[in-house]
Amino acid sequence: MSDSKTTGSQPDGSATGLRCIIVTPESTVLDVRAQFVALPLFDGQRGVGRGHAPFIGRLGSGEVRIIGDQAAAEGTVIRTFVEGGFVEVGHDSVTIITQRAIPSNKIDAEQARLDFEKVHAAVATGDEAIAAKMQAEETARAKLRAAQNAQ
């Protein structure tokens, strides 16, 4: 994969849509052309289409929805659960850099529910432990939601 394609800031008139890439420390999980991408930023969802003003944002835990490019496969939605990380939006590219990315339909919903209940039931004392618990709970909830959406 060449970097020049993704980092080129000049919008290419001939191409349509966005190039959406999801990178984890182990590999490049996804590299597709998309029409629209919905991102779970740390404070809520944000949609990005072609020509969006460039930004770098922090991601929370949640589902990335990628609506496929018309030319490639119209209306196909790719749902991927990501756990934190960053997103870099250029004029015609969206790069998601995250430590963990799982396709939503590969999440075991039952396991996600058990994990959520376990985190939810845990008792935390002290500010740091409470903050950690809240974070873990939020992640577990987002994972469970992603699993349910995929069903």
Binding site: S9, F42, D43, F55, I56, G57, R58, F86, E88
Partner: peptide, 26 residues
């Protein structure tokens, strides 16, 4: 190499929430 060139040509980014917070994570 290539990254250095890309940075030169790169656009001005906005940061959400702000650059320091991203730095703290990155």
């Amino acid at each position: 190499g290539e990254l250095a060139q890309a940075t030169r040509a790169s656009q001005e980014y906005e940061f959400f929430p702000f650059a320091e917070s991203i730095l703290e994570e990155i």
